[in-house]
């Protein structure tokens, strides 16, 4: 029994479990808290879960390509994160609100 537990924690399963947990956390935060700031943060968390899965697979399959993918993903995540932040700050200046529900206009002015 103890040997099985040790085997479980010493092998790759726990890494996949944690990466799944991170992806789940990201998606559920995105869906449950209807807030724009939390949405971009949640997307980042999901990104990181995918990164961890890539790095784990790369380590245990003996192929360095996965780690390079993680480097690329980090850089792209940085760029997309900052663009998302610019959009949210601008949106807040316009509407004075961070809720998803107010997000329904496509370019035209608000008539109210």
């Amino acid at each position: 029994m103890l040997q099985e537990i040790i085997n479980f924690f010493a092998k790759e399963y726990i890494f996949y479990l944690i990466s799944g947990m991170l992806i789940f956390l990201g998606i559920s935060l995105f869906l449950l808290r209807k807030n724009l700031l939390i949405a971009i943060l949640a997307l980042e968390v999901a990104f990181n879960g995918v990164n961890l899965a890539f790095a784990t697979a790369s380590h245990y399959l003996g192929d360095p390509k996965g780690k390079m993918v993680v480097l690329v993903t980090l850089a792209i995540a940085a760029g997309s994160f900052s663009i998302g932040l610019i959009l949210v700050v601008n949106y807040y200046r316009l509407k004075r609100s961070l809720s998803f529900d107010e997000l329904k206009l496509l370019g035209e002015r608000d008539e109210e």
């Binding site: 890494f15 944690i18 968390v45 961890l52 993680v70 980090l74």
Partner: peptide, 24 residues
């Protein structure tokens, strides 16, 4: 969430990816 990200950097160390951990 920040603590989770730091812990993920620690996990990279266990995957022999020291450079990735430092970048993280």
């Amino acid at each position: 969430i920040l603590v989770l990200m730091v812990l993920q950097g620690v996990l990279f160390l266990y995957l022999n990816a020291e450079f990735l951990a430092a970048v993280q």
